[in-house]
Every structure is written in structure tokens, then in C-alpha cells.
Simulated scan of single mutants.
Amino acid sequence: MTTAVRTAPHHRNLTCYTDYACRLPECSERYRDWQRNRARAVADGTWQPFIDATPVREHLLKLYAAGLTPHRVSVLTGIDWNTIRLYTQPAVKQGRGMTRRTTVEFQAKILAVQAAPTLPGRVDPTGTRRRIQALSAIGWPLKELGPHIGIQPDNVRRILVRSQMVYGATAQATMTAYNELRDSRPRRHGVSKIGVARALRNAKQHRWAPPKYWDQHPGAIDDPHFESMYRVTRREIVAQDANWIMTTLGLSKAAAAERLGVDKSYIEHAFRDHPEYAIEVAA
């Protein structure tokens, strides 16, 4: 019978040595350095032992209730989000329970994070969606935006297709990321050429407006009642208007054309190009 060997998720701290039996030379040396420093601190009377993690867990739960996510706390503290997550829930797949003890330094970093009291719990997602879409329209893949916003990559797509509301903290974090990235080139941030091309193609297919478009309409990016006309042609507008007139008022194509100031043939061409608005009624 062969016993599976767990692989350390990273090699940046002592856990790879103590929890995963990692014996890479650099990791072993890191552990020996820690032991030497500990012995020296104990002798000097400056050693700070591990402390109860309850205050950390309670503070994290308050932050989560206020709308912050483990990813956002990770961005604010520089601590790996998986480490933060273990203070409020166990890592079932890795066989590790919830973290019960911590260091004074770790506790200080977590307690220093405060949820802005002015941020509402949940807000309309319009502005958040449009900012994500605008960044995608200049070449940012959705999965690359998660770390900049402070949420999981899968949650970025979820905001676009399913969320009815978003956390106020997420909306604020998205706004910050938007302002930081809107004038940047994704390639200079490590995004592959293929990734940029796919993002541009997807944004074009969905007609997502870039930042420059929203600059022309101050305040509109957060307005759920503002209808973006980015890449919308006059013919499509006529098809929409004709559809509304004919459906609501029961008029013919000729009467609708007269109201819109176009020929009936223009409406027919508009319906042909945009069949989703086409209506078959009496001419």
C-alpha cells in the first residue's frame, strides 16, 4: 500500500516543512534559521510565543459581514488568502483544521484592517459590471482581474452574469482597480498576447464599452437607467424604435416609418439586419 505524499501549496514559510514534510534545501535552511532565531529570542527574553487566534477569527468574521472577502483582506495585508481563510474555516481537502493559534505580528496585521463604515452591505451591480467590462474591452481577461479587485477569478464572471447585487466593498475595490488599470497595458502586467486577444474578442462580441466611452458620459457608468449606445448603429436603433411603435401602437411598417422619418424599406432592411426586433404585421 502506497501512502500519498501531500504537496506543499507554496514554499514561502515554515508550513511546507512542518505540515508537508518538505525537505528542499532552502526550506530546511529557513526552518533552521527560525529555530536559531527562536532560541536566541528565548535567551534574550524577547521571544513572543503563539497566542490564541480567537480575536483574529472574530475580526475576520466582522470584516466578512461588512462585505470584505478573504481575497480583499489578502490584498490589504499582503498575507496569502488561503492562510487567512483557515482562521474561519478548516481546509478539508488538505486535512488541516481551522487555525487556533497565531502570532502577535499576524494578529496586528489583521486587526489593522477596518471595513469602511460608509460602505453599504450590498449595492446595485451596474457600475461594478461596467467597470469590469470596460477593462476587458482594453484587453484584460476576466480571470486576471480577480487579484486586482481582491476576489476569486470565478467571482468576476459571476458578477457579470448572475449577481443581482454586489457587496459595497467589492464595488469600491472594483472602482479602485478600474482607476489603476484603465490606462495600463495588460501585456506589461504579464498577460499573454493570446489572453489579450481573447479578451478583446469577447468584449467586442458583447459590445462592452471601453473607459474612453464612459469618459464621454460623466456619471453614466453607475447609472442603471443609462442605456449604453456603444457600437449601436442607426439601423439597429430604427429597428428597436419600429418594434416598439408597431408593438405598442399596433401601427404598420409604413406608419412607423412615417413617424421615424424614414422610408418603409429602411425599416425592412433594419429588421433584416436585426431579426430579433422584426415584426410581421400588415404593411
Results as ranks from 00 to 15, higher is better:
87 Y>S: 02
187 R>M: 01
157 R>F: 12
3 T>A: 09
94 Q>P: 02
66 A>C: 05
208 W>Q: 09
223 D>E: 07
96 R>M: 10
243 N>F: 11
146 G>E: 02
140 W>T: 02
99 T>I: 13
129 R>Y: 15
118 T>N: 10
173 A>I: 03
174 T>R: 09
267 I>F: 11
192 S>C: 08
9 P>I: 06
254 A>H: 12
110 I>R: 09
16 C>K: 06
39 A>W: 02
209 A>K: 10
44 D>V: 00
49 P>E: 12
125 P>I: 06
165 M>Y: 14
108 A>Y: 04
139 G>S: 06
205 Q>E: 14
267 I>H: 13
259 R>G: 09
139 G>Y: 09
126 T>N: 04
176 T>M: 03
168 G>S: 04
178 Y>T: 00
102 T>W: 06
11 H>F: 11
26 E>M: 05
70 P>D: 11
216 Q>H: 09
249 L>T: 04
217 H>L: 06
139 G>R: 08
101 R>P: 00
152 Q>V: 08
103 T>D: 13
1 M>D: 07
241 D>V: 00
164 Q>D: 13
223 D>S: 04
142 L>R: 13
5 V>E: 08
272 R>C: 05
231 R>Q: 15
68 L>N: 01
209 A>G: 08
217 H>G: 04
251 L>I: 12
57 R>C: 05
254 A>R: 14
162 R>A: 13
42 V>R: 00
123 V>H: 10
256 A>W: 13
3 T>I: 10
123 V>Y: 11
129 R>H: 13
151 I>R: 00
227 E>N: 11
57 R>W: 04
196 V>E: 14
258 E>M: 10
268 E>G: 14
98 M>I: 15
257 A>V: 10
153 P>G: 07
240 Q>E: 15
281 V>F: 12
113 V>M: 13
224 P>N: 11
122 R>K: 12
248 T>R: 15
133 Q>R: 04
22 C>V: 03
131 R>L: 00
58 E>V: 06
133 Q>K: 06
45 G>S: 05
53 A>Q: 09
138 I>K: 02
63 L>G: 06
166 V>M: 03
175 M>K: 06
128 T>I: 01
136 S>L: 02
37 N>A: 09
59 H>I: 08
19 D>C: 10
169 A>K: 07
37 N>L: 10
82 N>V: 02
13 N>K: 12
256 A>T: 12
19 D>R: 15
139 G>A: 06
37 N>T: 08
241 D>L: 04
104 V>E: 10
95 G>P: 14
147 P>H: 02
32 R>W: 11
221 I>D: 05
155 N>M: 14
84 I>N: 05
201 R>L: 06
137 A>Q: 03
237 I>R: 09
176 T>A: 12
254 A>C: 01
38 R>H: 04
270 A>R: 01
69 T>C: 07
197 A>N: 11
3 T>M: 10
149 I>L: 14
132 I>Q: 09
213 Y>A: 03
204 K>Y: 08
124 D>W: 06
187 R>N: 01
69 T>L: 07
186 P>M: 05
228 S>I: 08
203 A>E: 03
205 Q>G: 04
157 R>G: 15
